[in-house]
Write a protein that binds this DNA or RNA. Structure first.
Length: 564
DNA sequence: AGGCGGTACTG
DNA sequence: CAGTAC
DNA sequence: GCCT
């Protein structure tokens, strides 16, 4: 117990050293985050609440590791500080997450109407709370005065300290927010750091059930998700596409940046009013902020007009062909091709490889999404065929389908097999592909596995429902060793953003995560990070749960892993 | 000034 | 190896 | 392009 108390105090000290404030009493109007490694009961007791629902959704409940991560965050990732990765209670995993629609498309069956409350309750200023908090923790080292520990000790409620005797300590803290939101009324909080940055208090409408009305009211968004900055998003998206279709690393990363800005804007609840407000969003810098303002003031972005030249448009068209990227598209343009027909007829001597031929032939099919039902129908044909080859197979559908999306861009099917009876799934893929071709479910192959008798291989192809006039659909088969099924499930379920955050958290914690497992002690060549000097030691890979647990990521069902 | 994921398949 | 896809 |  003494130990726990000391640890609590040292943790409190760390918090204040990094510019956080501890709040003696739970007050929803000032508390921005709740930090606890304790269990639900003790935490609630310390807060003086009856249940977790009483905590407003804008206040995330995070573990101590969140603080560690914020402080230890070194390079290039604001997402490290995403609170959901550090949520103390899975019920509150969404608290503090700036997503309007993170629960929008989950498990939507026909009788399941979109849940308006869920859609809106996640939203709001949580975003502000989040990244403001991050900045406080990381940037405010220059604050010279911090409260004396005894004061802190006294200021903490007795109950809270008692809690830490038997469980891990619980602390609350409050970090002053920078006045980045221009219409937030700035005020200086109690601490006397005169030279500190502008501080403001974020207005929390604490005791309202936070649902719909309170926040979305200023936009008459009776229709769910009308994003207040949609016009800005559209223009930035265009610009992003332009950069994406150009060859060259810089453009690639520019597109990457715009993509991030777009994601942020999509979840930003208010119309951007000023350059400063735009600038205040993590991921929006000078350049993008001024573009945002231009769009808002003039309704357009001149950059787009003179950047969206003919070669770019044609390039984008060509890149819609499977197997054609920036490089090939540009070559074809240089050869004089301007339309898909030009390409088809081999104008300028352009040649297509087999995959590209297929990609061109089914251009529109491949570029459109299929209804969830269709993905299911196709899968329901495939799975029995696979099980007929070997009843021991594990055959599951991954990707956006597993996340519950209403429409899917492709079908990803994971295949593996328990080995306890001494058998494996090696070689099954070849047989399955044959069967599926025979059944006229598989129609074209795009990429075959290098060695189909490996336990781990990848197949890419096209399929359809064996009916007249049904569209071609992209389908992938992925086989993995039974041992790595958990990591593979995570990896192939996504979404991308979620995976990236997992990977980065793993890295910060000293692990490396990939589709094969969670590894410790991976050493990479600093000059070529793709080279591993030491492959590391496998820590976990068999189940999703254990990987989540080791990474201290609260368990989330696939439909809860939507971040993009 | 350097990072922004890491891997597999094609030709 | 570069290019592409995921 | 943005962030450290």
């Amino acid at each position: 117990m003494r130990h726990a108390t000391e640890r609590t105090r040292s943790r409190m000290d760390i918090i204040v050293r990094h510019g956080g404030n501890l709040i003696p009493k739970f007050d929803v109007s000032v508390v921005t985050h709740i930090v606890t490694d304790a269990q639900k009961g003790p935490t609630l007791r310390a807060l003086g609440l009856r249940n977790l629902d009483k905590i407003p959704d804008h206040i995330p409940t995070v573990k101590w590791s969140w603080i560690v991560s914020c402080i230890g965050a070194t390079q290039g990732d604001a997402r490290l500080n995403e609170v959901w990765l550090y949520a103390a209670f899975s019920e509150r995993i969404d608290a503090g997450i700036p997503k309007f629609n993170s629960t929008l498309s989950r498990n939507r069956t026909k009788d399941n109407v979109p849940d308006v409350v869920n859609i809106s309750h996640i939203s709001q200023f949580t975003q502000d709370g989040n990244h403001l908090q991050e900045r406080n923790l990381i940037d405010m080292d220059d604050i010279s005065e911090f409260p004396d520990p005894d004061n802190l000790q006294r200021s903490l409620p007795r109950a809270l300290l008692d809690v830490t005797k038997t469980h891990d300590p619980l602390e609350q803290f409050y970090a002053k927010a920078k006045a980045e939101l221009e219409n937030g009324s700035p005020y200086h909080s109690d601490s006397e750091c005169g030279s500190g940055p502008d501080l403001s208090r974020i207005e929390f409408h604490a005791d309202m059930p936070l649902a719909k009305k309170g926040w979305t009211c200023d936009k008459r968004a009776d229709k769910i998700d009308v994003c207040p900055n949609q016009d800005v998003i559209d223009k930035l998206q265009e610009l992003m596409e332009i950069h994406k279709s150009r060859l060259g690393e810089e453009d690639r990363w520019r597109a990457f940046s715009y993509n991030k800005c777009i994601r942020i804007l999509k979840s930003y609840p208010r119309r951007i009013q000023s350059l400063n407000e735009a600038r205040s969003l993590a991921g929006v810098g000078e350049k993008t902020a001024s573009k945002i303002i231009e769009i808002i003031e003039t309704g357009q972005l001149r950059r787009i007009d003179y950047e969206n030249t003919d070669d770019i448009k044609v390039g984008r068209l060509f890149q819609g062909i499977y197997g054609v990227g920036q490089s090939i598209a540009y070559q074809w343009y240089a050869s004089g091709c301007r339309t898909l027909d030009d390409v088809l007829s081999g104008k300028g001597g352009v040649k297509l490889n087999p995959a590209q031929e297929i990609g061109l032939k089914f251009y529109s099919d491949i570029n459109s999404r299929m209804p969830r039902d269709e993905a299911k129908a196709i899968f329901d044909l495939i799975k029995p065929i696979a099980l007929q080859l070997d009843p021991g197979l594990f055959v599951e559908i991954m990707g956006s389908f597993r996340r519950g999306k209403a429409d899917c861009g492709d079908i990803d099917i994971l295949i593996t097999r328990p080995t306890d009876d001494g058998k494996t799934h090696a070689g099954i893929l070849s047989r399955l592909l044959r069967e599926l071709h025979a059944a006229e479910i598989l129609t074209e192959d795009l990429a075959l596995p290098e060695n189909p008798y490996d336990l781990e291989c990848i197949y890419r192809g096209l399929c359809h429902l064996p009916k007249e006039g049904s569209s071609r659909r992209r389908i992938d088969f992925l086989t993995v060793p039974w041992q790595s099924r958990g990591a593979a499930l995570i990896y192939y379920t996504g979404d991308d953003i979620f995976n990236r955050a997992m990977r980065m958290k793993a890295r910060v914690m000293g692990y490396a995560l990939n589709q094969r497992g969670l590894f410790a002690g991976v050493v990479r060549d600093p000059h070529d990070r793709s080279k591993k000097l030491n492959p590391g030691q496998l820590i976990a890979s068999e189940t999703e749960e254990e990987i989540f647990r080791i990474l201290e990521v609260p368990w989330q069902e696939p439909h809860q892993r939507i971040r993009g």
